[in-house]
């Protein structure tokens, strides 16, 4: 068995000898790293920021014009910065289609929050749509340096194909001001569901 393993390794190595130059490839990568993001990428960032600002404005106007119910049946509606409430006014967005494990960017929206609102730790929550229900896939706290000074959050998409909703929510204190962050992005992870292994495949 060990000899066969060696033969596979040697065969694959013999058939994959790169004729290129590591220095040239590093030169290209290094040059790309040194340059700012492409115009299109920067444009996408601006589009994301503009969309987030529009959503926020619509949300604020709606909040100011709509009186709060006197006795809300659900405590979540009493929270001004409730991400659930925020999502009600989200403009329908384009679903990003990515490969499993690919990088995804989520445009962040932020606004100042008055004292007295609930403080919630910054977190990323990933929901998966399964049979018209949403299942919690992951919830993790975000470090402030992942967010501060950024207009987007970069995350790696799940490995299982399917439809996911990424939600960023929480408050943070920066330079003495309390800010609420909210963002939502729907992602479709490409690929087929893993096939079941037939009996013949069992070792």
């Amino acid at each position: 068995m060990q000899r066969f393993d060696e033969q596979i390794t040697e065969t694959l190595r013999a058939k994959s000898e790169w004729p290129g130059s590591a220095d040239a490839l590093w030169g290209r990568i290094s040059s790309d790293l040194d340059q700012p993001r492409s115009k299109w990428r920067r444009k996408r960032l601006w589009v994301g920021m503009a969309t987030a600002a529009t959503i926020f404005l619509a949300f604020m106007i709606h909040t100011m014009l709509t009186p709060l119910p006197p006795d809300p049946p659900d405590p979540q509606f009493s929270r001004l910065a409730s991400p659930e409430a925020f999502s009600l006014f989200m403009v329908p967005e384009e679903i990003q289609t990515v490969l499993p494990g690919e990088e995804v960017q989520i445009a962040l929206g932020s606004y100042f929050t008055p004292e007295g609102d609930d403080d919630r730790d910054l977190r990323l929550v990933i929901w998966r749509s399964l049979h018209s229900e949403e299942v919690l896939v992951e919830e993790r706290l975000l470090e402030e340096d992942e967010i501060l000074g950024q207009s987007v959050l970069w995350v790696i998409s799940p490995t299982e194909p399917g439809l996911y909703r990424f939600v960023v929510e929480g408050t943070l204190l920066t330079e003495g001001e309390r800010m609420t962050l909210a963002a939502e992005q729907t992602i479709r992870v490409e690929g087929k569901e893993e096939d079941a292994i037939s009996e013949n495949d069992q070792p």
């Binding site: 290129g20 490839l25 990568i29 790309d32 690919e102 992942e146 970069w154 790696i156």
Partner: peptide, 22 residues
């Protein structure tokens, strides 16, 4: 295909390096 393999590796390194913070 060597040309596309190089492109794929270049993109992979760029993505990895830009995501290192996370």
């Amino acid at each position: 295909n060597w040309a596309t393999a190089e492109d794929a590796v270049q993109e992979a390194f760029l993505q990895a390096f830009r995501s290192l913070h996370s």
